[in-house]
Amino acid sequence: MTLREINSKMVEATVVPGQRLFSQRGAMLAYKGEVSFTPNIQGGQGGLMSMIGRRVAGEATPLMTVEGSGTVFFGHGGHHVQVINLSGDTLYVEADRLLAFEGTLQQGTMFMGSQGGVMGMVRGQVTGQGLFTTTLKGHGAVAVMAHGGVFEVPITPQRPVHVDPQAYVAHHGDVRNKLSTALGWRDMVGRGSGEAFQLELSGNGAVYVQASEEKL
């Protein structure tokens, strides 16, 4: 395991020669050993086309490549950090929530409309994710930032999970999500319960929820 939580707001990454690590630019707090940080103009992996794709999608957060041998500490803005270990499945997360991830993971951009067409696009707008979201696929660890603590809710085929769109952080696994509305006449007359829109996740996997309705 390369990434390790040392407290709720800091992660420690072990860097060994030959293994790259990507992190949000400026998120390094301290390091030991011989480590180099190179700004990644492309904003992640892939070729030129991936870079253009990310720029167009607005999912281009400034990243840097961390190489060498030693230990690096990451943290950003006092946000809570959660390390998620992936073993072959895909993690869906907003690019600005990414603190650091291993180079073994494959980074990509997903169009929200590809999951559920127009409703998928509407969902992206409601959750504040925009029209695109970042995917990370493969084996490795990811450090994700959230406001307040993060807790994991498992999703099984029998038990779909509903999440407040503002408290949603990330999800992984074979999960279908759709926006469910519980709009009634009460909401129309301004007497709503404040839970009109919910993100319904069903399938097999897990969703990460933060203890707050605030964005980063």
């Binding site: 999970v161 929820v209 309705e213």
Partner: peptide, 16 residues
């Protein structure tokens, strides 16, 4: 408190 739900599983109904 209104709007304080962050997630649920099963069947839930919310009424102000």
């Amino acid at each position: 408190k209104n709007g304080s739900m962050v997630a649920y599983d099963g069947q839930m109904a919310f009424k102000k």
